[in-house]
């Protein structure tokens, strides 16, 4: 009896937190998609050559953004199953996708706030943060992204 009650409680909490996480994730994806559609003529490349640079403007400068996204309990639970059978762990793929897109979003926002309209040589790298808790129990995705912001004549590049 006690075992079944605690099991039900465990499953309820697991799914409750999981659905909260799912809700947060979907809201985040919506913000990302909105931002990506509002990007307009902001040019993002990972070229080293300043395509379409406008001479005589303020000199280019580097912009950086850090993002750390945590997984939720439900994700961990499904991931442990997937880990047993092998194959893609979709919930974790989505988590890292979220983190990287958020990093790009922040880079663009920072470049825009500084008055630039393009970023070049976009790089993104994993940023390891040692986890104080048991290793592997709680997954997270941490990234540092950086790029060089400059003034660009977007129409000259994209045609």
């Amino acid at each position: 009896m006690l075992v079944s009650i605690s099991l039900i409680l465990f499953v309820t909490v697991l799914f409750g937190l999981g659905f909260a996480g799912r809700f947060v994730e979907q809201a985040h994806f919506k913000r990302l998609v909105d931002h990506e559609q509002m990007r307009g003529d902001f040019l993002v490349t990972q070229l080293k050559t300043y395509p379409g640079a406008v001479p005589g403007q303020r000199s280019p400068t580097m912009v950086c953004a850090e993002v750390v996204i945590a997984s939720d309990y439900l994700k961990n639970f499904f991931a442990s199953w997937q880990d047993f059978f092998g194959g893609e762990i979709c919930s974790y793929s989505r988590m890292t996708d979220r983190a990287k897109r958020e990093a790009l979003k922040r880079l663009i926002d920072e470049a825009r706030s500084l008055g630039y309209n393009a970023i070049g040589n976009f790089r993104i790298e994993t940023a390891d943060i040692g986890d104080r808790r048991t290793k592997g129990a709680e997954a997270m995705s941490s990234w540092i992204g950086y790029a060089t912001a400059y003034h660009c004549d977007t129409r000259a590049v994209t045609g």
């Binding site: 937190l17 909260a20 996480g21 947060v24 994730e25 985040h28 950086c64 850090e66 993002v67 750390v68 996204i69 945590a70 997984s71 939720d72 309990y73 994700k75 988590m95 958020e102 940023a127 943060i129 104080r132 808790r133 709680e138 997270m140 941490s142 540092i144």
Partner: peptide, 26 residues
């Protein structure tokens, strides 16, 4: 901060404390 991150890990989402850590490091 680590404990706060631990709580956040139950529902997922941004870990502001760790983002701050990276920003301060940079």
């Amino acid at each position: 901060r680590d404990i706060a991150a631990g709580f956040k890990n139950s529902v997922g989402g941004e870990l502001k404390g760790y983002i701050e850590l990276l920003t301060e490091s940079r």
